[in-house]
Amino acid sequence: MADIPAYAVSRATRSSRIGMAIGLIVLIILATAPWWAGRADLRLLIEIFYYLALAQLWNLLAGYTGLVSVGQQAFVGLGGYTLFALAAFGGVNPLAAIALAGVVAAIFALPTAFLVFRLRGAYFAIGTWVVAEVYRLGFAQVSALGGGSGMSLPADVVRSIADGRQAREWLVYWVALIIVLAAMAIVYALLRSRQGLALTAIRDSEPASESLGVNTYRTKLVIYIAVAFATGLVGALIFLQKLRISPDAAFSVNDWTAFVIFIVVIGGIGRIEGPIIGVIVFFVLRELFVDFGAWYLMLLGAVAVVIMLLAPRGLWGLLTDRWDIQLFPVRRALVVKETKDSG
């Protein structure tokens, strides 16, 4: 064993260094958006940020850990309702309530996991959806939270966020930007770590991961709960921006799971770059089809089918088939300097 070939392990690539530089420039542009963008643009950007965050989180769950959940709206809704309940009745500052919303979502995720982890594959997917529906129906029964018709964030709570409408909107914008950056940074750091190896291995073969020493149950449980925590945070943010919540909006499978799956699958599942491409495509299509009314969802479905037929690994997969680009390299490439017999 002592006599091994000289080697090096490389983790960054040239494209990733260029990507980082471009990313930094984009970040500076986005961070200064309140000074150059209009109100409607800011609102659109916030929406893009939370969809990107939800897509990164769902990608971590389904694309890496192999937990194809169709019930992430459960945690969006829980996060949103926690914010409203704490801010309206608990007198908690709404920004502090965002963090607590994550904690509450994570607490609910634990019993949910014990239930849905008994199921596999398609049954797991349906099971998570059923649980989310139960939460929706449950919240519709709580009359203090407005029952089925929901509630608005009280005016004094809205005023407590910041002085004046503009300051409030700017603050919410920066919080959204911080949350999406944090979500991406954590997912990236996780995938580069030892746990990232385990997650990718579980995605590809659970029995083989287990027989190579990976505690698959605990790994999946930790990821499920961490993703629920972050999804709860995003949920709180979404409804802090909307200022109004109802069970149908909070636990919408369409808004918080179907669109998110579209984004991830179109962009490229199991790649960090995938959701970024996907979210751009999704919003471009939405702005293009905005006048088509009910046809919009059908067109979206048609686009999804076409892309899946032409690029089964998503648009990012199509790009990386041609060129070896990685903006967020999670690989470990082995460079052998000399082999024993050649030396």
């Binding site: 030892r194 590809d204 073969s205 190579l212 990976v214």
Partner: peptide, 22 residues
């Protein structure tokens, strides 16, 4: 065989060395 298809051969081995081999 149950390879981790999306990972390289080297990364396949790393899973075993990092986890099973500790």
């Amino acid at each position: 065989p149950h390879p981790f298809e999306g990972m390289t051969v080297f990364e396949n081995l790393l899973v075993g060395a990092r986890f099973g081999g500790d």
